[in-house]
């Protein structure tokens, strides 16, 4: 498989055709806000629970801020590529930045007693808690997250 084809698979592998929204964000935190609003509106239309919407919003915040701040290092010439899909039973999103990537397993566990006072590293913990799946590509510059809808009353 060519690199290009691999890249496309990284992004759109699990998405059905025709329902995927593609967005290209500049490394501007205001764009995070706009995308969150856009996605939340769609989740609301499909009657996702308050709790799901809240968790997704927080996970999006953490993942997009990571991409812009730590990935692209706030470099305005770099982009964040997002594709997402909201279906009645689940929400899927891929977020790719143009940074060097990172190794999620190398981030010290911030919930370990000796790390509780470290001021950073909690975004990943929150993403993993609120989303059903969180997975990085090998380079660590693409995150794939999904949330299976909460059916509890």
């Amino acid at each position: 498989m060519s690199d290009d084809a691999q890249g496309k698979r990284d992004f759109a592998g699990s998405f059905p055709d025709g329902e995927v929204c593609h967005r290209l964000l500049s490394s501007d935190l205001q764009e995070v806000r706009r995308l969150q609003e856009e996605i939340d509106l769609r989740l609301k239309e499909l009657k996702f629970s308050e709790r799901d919407r809240r968790g997704i919003r927080l996970a999006l915040e953490e993942a997009l801020v990571n991409a812009i701040k730590h990935g692209n290092r706030l470099d305005q010439s770099k982009k964040v590529y997002v594709c997402y899909c909201v279906r009645p039973e689940r929400f899927d999103i891929h977020i790719a930045d143009e940074g060097a990537g990172f190794r999620p397993e190398a981030v010290p566990d911030p919930t370990a007693p000796e790390n509780l006072e470290r001021p950073s590293g909690r975004g990943l913990v929150l993403m993993r808690y609120y989303m059903t799946e969180v997975e990085y590509n090998a380079q660590g510059n693409v995150v794939r997250m999904s949330k299976v809808r909460d059916r509890s009353p």
Binding site: E62, E117, R122, G123
Partner: peptide
């Protein structure tokens, strides 16, 4: 109503 990890970081620094 909402708090992100970046805000938690500020609280930790304030505590220190």
């Amino acid at each position: 109503e909402y708090l992100s990890s970046a805000a938690l970081g500020k609280l930790i620094t304030l505590n220190k």
